[in-house]
Amino acid sequence: MPFDLRPQTLPGDGTQASADARAVAYWLLAVAGLVWAMVAIGGATRLTGSGLSIMEWAPLSGTLPPMSEAEWQRLYDLYRTIPQYALLNAGFGMEGFKEIFWLEWIHRFWGRLIGLAYAGGLAWFWLRGRIPAGFKPRLFGLLALGGLQGAVGWYMVASGFEADRTAVAPYRLVIHLGLALLIFSALVWTALGLLRPEGTATAEARPVRRMLKVAVWSLVAAMLAGGFVAGTRAGFSYNTFPLMDGQWVPDGYLLLDPWWRNMTANILAVQFNHRLLATIAAVMALGAVWAAKRRLPPGPARNAVYALGATVALQYALGVATLVHVVPVSLGTLHQATAVLVLAAALVALHGLRPAPARPAPTP
């Protein structure tokens, strides 16, 4: 199977400790699934311009939606004070406001659901003494990261209330996205470590693992560059592929001064960087597939690398389709959700290629 998440057969399997490790791992994977959905919902929220519809950060009282017409009117009046309403949505009425409000409310509610699922699960395993030895600090650290993500989310949203802004600041969007990807990665990697605590790859797998590491870091860079594309709405320009404005490297790449501002604020440069990094990542992933075919025996590790190659190819095709169709909400959301699938595949492949531990030589 491409994603072999079955428990590793190790001495002592069948004990309470191994059962606890499996239970904690499956709980972490379930929470990772919720995070995956959260990233997709966040993509739809951004593409529909819904993220600024709720102008209050109320972690507890905001759990429930408005329950009266007076409360709806109060929130609508708040929204009408920000530039997004005046510049983009003036006069769209209460019904238009409710359309964007509900998507942002679902986004925030889903974040609360993730927090409840994680904190509740952690407390349950902790109080029953079922957390494997050495994992408590890491699990508590993940809880802290989740709390930080909530604060970063509001920090991002608040930037959209500034004068002349109709969307959040790209830098803050990338921080929010990057932290979500970090939390997802930590959840998946920790779960994999509980299910398969020892590496099994032989020395022949080292070149594959090295190429895979380059591919993974290229993928992460492409994902973060995609955050700047989203934040600057660069995907709505230069909607041809593979050429941009009829050129491989279009004029105006270093239009802004100082030069480094082009990496995050120049729409042309931001989109070109995302294209370039995605292409490098795709080439490296295909290189890892080729190396795995040559050097790895048939089995879960090789299948995991193949799965990574397939998900990268799918994501690349989705990226091109999203671009040439001028970023429809459906394709844009699917493209963002598939990025998390690619990350999951990369983590499974890397974990499957961990070197086997050195065994002491048998005594004569």
Results as ranks from 00 to 15, higher is better:
residue 280 I to H: 11
residue 280 I to Q: 12
residue 280 I to P: 03
residue 281 A to L: 04
residue 281 A to W: 03
residue 281 A to S: 14
residue 282 A to K: 07
residue 283 V to P: 04
residue 283 V to Q: 10
residue 284 M to L: 15
residue 286 L to D: 02
residue 286 L to W: 10
residue 287 G to V: 03
residue 287 G to W: 04
residue 288 A to H: 02
residue 288 A to P: 01
residue 289 V to G: 07
residue 289 V to W: 13
residue 289 V to D: 02
residue 290 W to S: 12
residue 291 A to T: 07
residue 291 A to D: 05
residue 291 A to S: 14
residue 291 A to K: 14
residue 292 A to I: 03
residue 292 A to M: 10
residue 293 K to N: 15
residue 293 K to M: 15
residue 295 R to D: 00
residue 296 L to G: 03
residue 296 L to C: 04
residue 297 P to V: 10
residue 298 P to F: 12
residue 298 P to V: 10
residue 298 P to M: 14
residue 299 G to S: 09
residue 299 G to T: 02
residue 300 P to Q: 12
residue 301 A to E: 12
residue 302 R to T: 03
residue 302 R to E: 05
residue 302 R to C: 08
residue 303 N to I: 08
residue 303 N to Y: 14
residue 304 A to R: 05
residue 304 A to G: 10
residue 304 A to E: 07
residue 305 V to P: 02
residue 305 V to A: 10
residue 308 L to T: 08
residue 308 L to G: 06
residue 308 L to Y: 07
residue 309 G to H: 04
residue 309 G to R: 05
residue 310 A to G: 13
residue 311 T to Q: 12
residue 311 T to N: 11
residue 312 V to I: 10
residue 313 A to K: 04
residue 313 A to W: 01
residue 313 A to H: 01
residue 314 L to F: 05
residue 314 L to H: 07
residue 315 Q to A: 11
residue 315 Q to K: 11
residue 315 Q to N: 14
residue 316 Y to Q: 08
residue 316 Y to M: 12
residue 316 Y to G: 13
residue 316 Y to K: 12
residue 317 A to D: 02
residue 317 A to I: 07
residue 318 L to N: 10
residue 318 L to D: 10
residue 319 G to K: 08
residue 319 G to E: 04
residue 319 G to I: 00
residue 319 G to P: 02
residue 319 G to L: 04
residue 319 G to D: 06
residue 319 G to T: 06
residue 320 V to G: 04
residue 321 A to C: 07
residue 322 T to E: 09
residue 322 T to S: 09
residue 322 T to G: 05
residue 322 T to D: 10
residue 322 T to L: 08
residue 322 T to K: 10
residue 323 L to W: 02
residue 323 L to T: 02
residue 324 V to I: 15
residue 324 V to S: 03
residue 324 V to D: 01
residue 325 H to P: 00
residue 325 H to A: 15
residue 326 V to E: 14
residue 327 V to I: 13
residue 327 V to E: 06
residue 328 P to S: 05
residue 329 V to M: 09
residue 329 V to E: 14
residue 329 V to T: 14
residue 329 V to A: 12
residue 330 S to M: 15
residue 330 S to C: 11
residue 330 S to D: 12
residue 331 L to Q: 05
residue 331 L to P: 00
residue 331 L to C: 01
residue 331 L to W: 02
residue 332 G to F: 05
